[in-house]
Write a protein that binds this DNA or RNA. Sequence first.
DNA 1: AAATATACCTGACTGC
DNA 2: TGCAGTCAGGTATATT
Length: 270
Amino acid sequence: MPELPEVETSRRGIAPHLENQTITRIIVRNPKLRWPISPRLKQWLEDKEIKHVGRRAKYLLIQVAGGELIIHLGMSGSVRIVDANQEPAKHDHVDLVLDSGQCLRFTDPRRFGCWLWSEQKTAQELLQNLGPEPLSEDFNEDYFWHKIRTRKAPIKQVIMDNKVVVGVGNIYAAESLFLSGIHPKRSANKVSKERIKKLTSTIKQVLSRAITQGGTTLKDFIQSDGKPGYFKQELHVYGRAGLACLLCGTEIKNLVIGQRASCYCPACQK
DNA sequence: AAATATACCTGACTGC
DNA sequence: TGCAGTCAGGTATATT
């Protein structure tokens, strides 16, 4: 499922094929995503040249003259570059056809993703109020420490809160807490400053490492070249309930925190 | 302000 | 074999 490393992996994969290309056509087979795709997307995008492919949090930003296309992959979405003539499959909802003869094809079985234009109100509401990028210097020990002084919620929920830091989803939250030795249910404001420092650097390391591995593929996720991500092989706790901890051998447990499965090692995490 | 619950959606899996 | 039920999860929204 796409978290920040998967979105960044996708961005890097598609950018060279998109930048400086002109969008000749947009084909919407199913507009019913998280929010319906606007019929006006056609007029906003067609015949425009793509200037840059960026990312903010888990949003892909396709910049053209006059604004940008904002794509979210939701839970099960992926984008890839295919020949525009290639027959679409069942959940291939949108094509962005380029003058190279290729197209950016969006696939999303669960349709939790979205395609919005930057001038749409929904898009603007989504992008404001986002916390800092985890891999930027804005996300640092001091910021993090002060930000969560008032938060009594479990630390796991807090690091998954977009207003605190963006891009940390369920998988990487579980892994970061394991590698920092912090129990996922511990109140955020009761984690010592020393351990917040550790957690801050661990989050950065885990996300960076996952990006170099091409993301984590569980079921749906594929990179833009159609290959899976390889970070799954490096997971310590996520999806390993009932198995032995790789560090100490204790059985990995699963807790539900905020309606989310949360795997952890009872011995390594306090 | 923060915590909690609910909704959206389909595929994979389980149990009868 | 098939059907019904459950689960997974990002994130907006409404409610407490």
